[in-house]
């Protein structure tokens, strides 16, 4: 048999392995976007098209800022990987519906620039960028960020937008004014479906749970963080005494009434800023739950999810160091 003439053929040479699972950054990020869609629809349903406007502005601002900074840094523009869109959407979810539209634009631009690109871009940031953006707008425009509008259904019943409160806010308010808030305003069913005041993406428990089911099914998040986070808040708000004069909230109201589900499912599970091992995730989730409970019960703010995650983000490298896996044969 004569040798085959292979002189003209060139073959691809790359290092092993030559198989790949097919998982890519865009695949992961767009899956997260899909998992956020139920909450997005719920936000429109309960807060009207203004919610959608806020979400669109936050996403567009995030994408444009990221592209602009990457151009300035002379780096490839990678906005199509979906990571800017994810965090833009998450930032919008953390805003009340009454904010002016420049606020999500400024917030998105800030977190992209300072929360993400200043650290070196995707994968290098220490703190959850969407939450960095939230803290920035919260402290810059505190009044606008704490003016809660009622969900659509309540509006029809003639509730005054300015006096409307979130379940957690009402409880905290009671501490200050020593006037018990109206009982029964927030039924468990309302909190489950999302028919309560709050940030536009955080109120509907059912929509968030649909999202987490999808992410767990696809294997992009693991159960440890959300379960530890939520369980810790449930147990601690049940065990610890409330501050004097506070409207006593049940653990269930703590779980459903604020940003806990949104935070535990979508923020505390952010891959970049949280631990990698199962034990690490448990510790991270428990830490978040502890800090959230302490802020909610004894702190000055009605809500503590955002700060608890940011504080625990700072501990991520330490947790990773102490939860290293046992190397085979050692």
């Amino acid at each position: 048999m004569t040798a085959v003439n292979t002189k003209k053929r060139l073959f691809q040479v790359t290092p092993a392995p030559h198989f790949h699972s097919g998982e890519t950054i865009p695949r992961v990020m767009w899956a997260v976007v899909i998992s956020l869609l139920p909450a997005l629809l719920a936000s429109i349903y309960f807060f009207g098209y203004r919610a959608l406007q806020i979400e669109v502005v936050a996403v567009v601002s995030a994408v444009l800022t990221e592209a602009a900074i990457q151009k300035l840094r002379g780096r490839p523009v990678t906005v199509s990987d979906g990571s800017a869109a994810v965090a833009g959407l998450l930032l919008a979810f953390n805003l009340p519906v009454g904010v002016p539209l420049w606020l999500p634009a400024v917030g998105s631009a800030f977190w992209i620039a300072i929360g993400k690109q200043a650290f070196g871009g995707l994968g290098h940031n220490i703190f959850n960028p969407a939450l960095v953006g939230r803290v920035f707008v919260m402290h810059s425009w505190l009044g606008r960020m704490t003016t809660w509008s009622p969900p659509r259904t309540a509006l029809y019943e003639g509730v005054d937008a300015l006096t409307y409160a979130t379940p957690l806010g009402a409880a905290k308010e009671a501490v200050v004014s020593l006037v018990p808030a109206a009982e029964g305003v927030f039924s468990t069913a309302d909190m489950f479906w999302g028919n309560i005041g709050g940030c536009i993406g955080e109120t509907s428990a059912i929509a968030l749970l649909l999202g987490v089911a999808f992410l767990l099914y696809r294997g992009y998040i693991r159960w440890q963080t959300p379960v530890a986070f939520i369980a810790a808040v449930g147990v601690l708000t049940w065990l610890l005494p409330e501050q004097d004069g506070a409207l006593a909230l049940t653990p269930l109201q703590h779980l459903l009434g604020g940003g806990l589900l949104l935070g535990a499912i979508f923020m505390a599970t952010d891959m970049v800023t949280t631990p990698v091992t199962g034990w690490g995730m448990l510790i991270f989730g428990l830490g978040c739950g502890l800090i959230t409970s302490l802020i909610r019960l004894y702190g000055g703010f009605p809500e503590g999810v955002c700060y608890s995650i940011l504080i625990m983000n700072a501990f991520t490298p330490l947790i990773d160091r102490f939860t290293r896996l046992r190397i085979f044969g050692t």
Partner: peptide, 22 residues
């Protein structure tokens, strides 16, 4: 396919490692 993009810290590599490495 795109290679050597920034690490997302997702942990899939250490869950796949049969030697318990990261």
């Amino acid at each position: 396919r795109e290679r050597n993009l920034p690490c997302l810290h997702c942990g899939d590599c250490l869950r796949g490692c049969p030697m318990g490495l990261n």
